[in-house]
Simulated assay, not measured.
Amino acid sequence: MKKKNIIFGMVVIAVAVTAFKIADDIIARLGMQQRDAQTNIVNNLVGSFSTGAMDLNEEDNSQSVYRQMNSFKMPYVPMLKNVIQGDKAAAAKDLCDYVKRYINSEEFVTDYYNRREETMPLSDNGSSLSSLKKNKIMYGKNITNYKTDTKYVAEQQKLMDENQKRIEALIEESKKAFYGKDIWEKAYPADPAVLVKKRLQEYLTLVATVDFNATLSSSGRRQVFTNAAYEKKSLKWKALYRAGKEVNDVVTAFVKDWMKGEIIAKQKTQMTEKTSTQTNNNQNNTTPVNTPDVQTNTNKNNTLKVNTPAPGATDSATTPIKKKKSLFNKIKDKTSGVIKN
């Protein structure tokens, strides 16, 4: 009996691994890099392709093409034509599997909370929490790489300690009310499943309005809808139309089934080893901001004493780059830069 259980377990694992490879294969067949595909998923999910603190006007529901393109973009897919010429329904199912698997992965959680932290409209003298954490990593590397240079290490340690106090102070500030906090928390919920479910429902609502039998006519070099009203539809509506009914039938069935269960499972998976390695480079910057409604792990720094910078203090966060000493010139290079968002 025990032997049968072991064999059964091996079969389940084999099937799971095969499914993962199939899901990964659709990205390769589309001619995309997995990391690029994942970045596009996050960007379209949160509806923002900008970096740094969020634009507090992002809630503007203007349907201008410019604003739409800032919240929704079709990624460049080199091999899309080849995939379309094949089994489109099967390719759509594989792509849906990939998206769901990524959203249920440790990598997605890391990517989402990184983005959430980077976009928080709160800073310390122009430095965001995300940039201060990057500085902390750089100071640590300098201390490790040049530990025999006691003077330089002492300088870096002092800067690191000051930087740490700023991190702690900013975390404390993030727990209080600040300008734009309500907009930020709505755009980037503490629980990413809330946002994913919202986007899935938005898809179902929108796809139900698409007329896949709509006809096109030529207007110069352009193809336009015969029904002029359709020309005013959103970019997302037109993208669904271009994908076609066959593809959207598959996606609709998949989304409805997804919404019947957990949106994001408590037990996270991992992407392929290659993807995981690329993603984990940001591992030190994955801790979500501990706002009052966040039900995720809190930042370890939050247990330390908070020391708010003195009023009027200038930004001294730096990312020093110490050049390797030359055999002919052992003068220390004290070049430094400041990371700000």
Rank of each mutant, 00 (worst) to 15 (best):
Leu129Asn: 02
Ile84Val: 14
Val251Phe: 03
Val42Trp: 01
Asn280Ala: 12
Thr335Pro: 01
Val289Asp: 06
Thr314Phe: 07
Pro292Gly: 04
Asn114Pro: 00
Ala91Gly: 03
Thr226Val: 15
Ala317Pro: 01
Thr51Met: 05
Val109Asp: 15
Phe254Glu: 04
Val83Asp: 03
Phe72Lys: 01
Met1Glu: 09
Glu246Tyr: 06
Val255Gln: 03
Ser64Asn: 10
Lys3Phe: 10
Tyr98Thr: 05
Pro78Asp: 10
Glu173Ala: 14
Lys181Tyr: 02
Ala187His: 10
Trp258Arg: 01
Asn104Leu: 08
Leu204Phe: 05
Tyr146Gln: 09
Val153Asn: 01
Ile26Ala: 05
Lys186Gln: 13
Ile143Cys: 08
Leu56Met: 14
Glu262Arg: 04
Ala228Ile: 10
Ile103Glu: 06
Ser64Lys: 04
Ala37Lys: 06
Asn227Glu: 11
Asn142His: 03
Glu155Cys: 00
Ala89Lys: 14
Thr314Val: 11
Ala208Gly: 03
Asn142Met: 12
Glu168Arg: 08
Val12Met: 12
Asp333Lys: 04
Ala89Ile: 02
Ala91Val: 05
Lys181Trp: 02
Lys81Gln: 14
Arg101Leu: 15
Ile171Phe: 08
Ile167Val: 13
Thr277Gly: 05
Gln295Asp: 12
Val250Asn: 01
Thr287Val: 10
Leu195Gln: 09
Val11Ser: 02
Val224Thr: 13
Lys330His: 06
Ser336His: 06
Thr150Cys: 00
Gln157Cys: 02
Asp55Glu: 13
Met74Glu: 04
Ser105Val: 14
Gln68Ser: 07
Thr314Met: 08
Met69Thr: 15
Gln270Lys: 14
Thr215Cys: 00
Asn142Tyr: 09
Val194Phe: 03
Arg115Met: 14
Arg116His: 12
Ile13Val: 15
Ile26Glu: 04
Leu206His: 01
Val247Gly: 01
Gly337Asp: 13
Val306Glu: 05
Lys334Tyr: 15
Leu122Val: 11
Glu59Trp: 11
Asp24Ile: 06
Asp161His: 03
Asp257Gly: 07
Lys245Asn: 09
Asp249Thr: 07
Asn104Glu: 10
Phe225Lys: 08
Ala265Asn: 15
Val12Ile: 15
Phe20Asp: 10
Ile41Phe: 12
Ser64Asp: 12
Glu246Leu: 10
Ile321Gln: 07
Gly180Phe: 04
Ala190Pro: 05
Arg221Val: 13
Val83Asn: 04
Val17Cys: 14
Thr314Tyr: 09
Ala92Lys: 03
Thr303Leu: 12
Thr277Glu: 14
Asn290Trp: 09
Lys2Ala: 00
Asn44Gln: 08
Val12Phe: 07
Val289Asn: 03
Glu107Ile: 08
Val65Arg: 09
Ser48Met: 08
Thr205Pro: 01
Arg242Trp: 07
Thr286Ser: 15
Asn299Arg: 03
Trp184Tyr: 09
Val255Ala: 05
Trp237Thr: 03
Asp111Lys: 06
Ala228Tyr: 00
Lys81Val: 09
Tyr230Ser: 00
Asn301Arg: 05
Arg29Ser: 07
Arg221Met: 12
Asn145Gln: 12
Ser218Tyr: 08
Ala310Arg: 03
Lys236Trp: 08
Lys325Gln: 11
Glu106Met: 06
Leu122Pro: 05
Val255Pro: 02
Val294Ala: 15
